[in-house]
């Protein structure tokens, strides 16, 4: 049984390792629950930082030094900052009301499905223990730092995937720029300011502008410049 193994294992665990694991695990789980349970996305992002740093500590505990550093730099330093940037910049940090949910059943079903996932994974972890060939191509040498092992592996065996990640990152950057930029030609609602279409341009017909201007979207149009521009055109 697994529990017997655990008890036998716990008896031999060095105390600092056990304490480190316990504290990091508590931080990870609490942070994850915070991401799911907090109303404000900003608080969720801050809880996510706790989870990510806890996972980095666990990486250190498992002698994956390079990955722990990368975890902090990339995840906590770049990805969460990107989340916070988008929230603050776009103002999408409105709190989500848990009361008036259009589909109350979905929450119950979601929690049940999550419990089923947890049970399934735990059952699978119980019946099948770690199998497979040990150190098929690149064993961990057991030195203090495993950066050399990882570099040897990435730059020899996984060289082609490594190069492919470069192409992936470039593609992602270009795609993000294309997706997030303002379209300057098509005058969508809320995006009427466009440097390439001057106010008196014949392409923007004055009769369409009041229709575009009305409605709820115009109220949240950024800045007052758009309205001035539209008034000039309609006059």
């Amino acid at each position: 049984m697994m529990s017997v193994n655990f008890l036998a294992a716990v008896a031999h665990v060095a105390v600092p390792d056990a304490v480190t694991f316990a504290v990091a695990a508590v931080v990870v789980v609490l942070g994850a629950i915070g991401v799911v349970a907090t109303k404000s996305p900003i608080h969720g992002a801050l809880c996510l930082v706790g989870t990510l740093i806890g996972v980095a500590v666990l990486f250190l505990e498992e002698q994956a030094d390079f990955l722990a550093a990368v975890q902090v730099i990339v995840y906590a330093g770049a990805i969460v900052v990107l989340f916070l940037f988008v929230m603050m910049l776009m103002g999408v940090d409105r709190e989500e009301s848990f009361k008036d949910d259009p589909m109350k059943v979905q929450r119950v079903v979601g929690i049940i499905v999550g419990a089923c996932v947890l049970a399934g994974v735990l059952i699978l972890a119980n019946v099948q223990w770690v199998t497979g060939a040990h150190s098929a191509n690149a064993p961990l040498t057991g030195r203090v730092s495993n950066v050399n092992d990882l570099a040897n592996s990435v730059f020899t065996v996984y060289l082609l995937p490594f190069e492919a990640t470069a192409a992936l990152l470039i593609t992602a950057v270009v795609g993000a720029v294309l997706l997030a930029r303002r379209r300057s030609v098509v005058p969508l609602v809320g995006m009427t300011e466009s440097p390439e279409v001057p106010p008196g341009s014949p392409e923007v017909s004055p009769t369409e502008l009041p229709g575009d201007d009305g409605g709820s979207v115009a109220e949240v149009a950024p800045g007052g410049e758009d309205k001035d521009q539209n008034e000039v055109v309609s006059q």
Partner: peptide, 24 residues
């Protein structure tokens, strides 16, 4: 001796389940 690997796997399963519940 370090912490047994099962604890890490269980923590991973719990973390994955919390994420799945959050998505749903």
């Amino acid at each position: 001796m370090t912490v047994h690997a099962s604890w890490y796997l269980i923590l991973g399963a719990v973390l994955f389940s919390i994420g799945a519940v959050g998505i749903l």
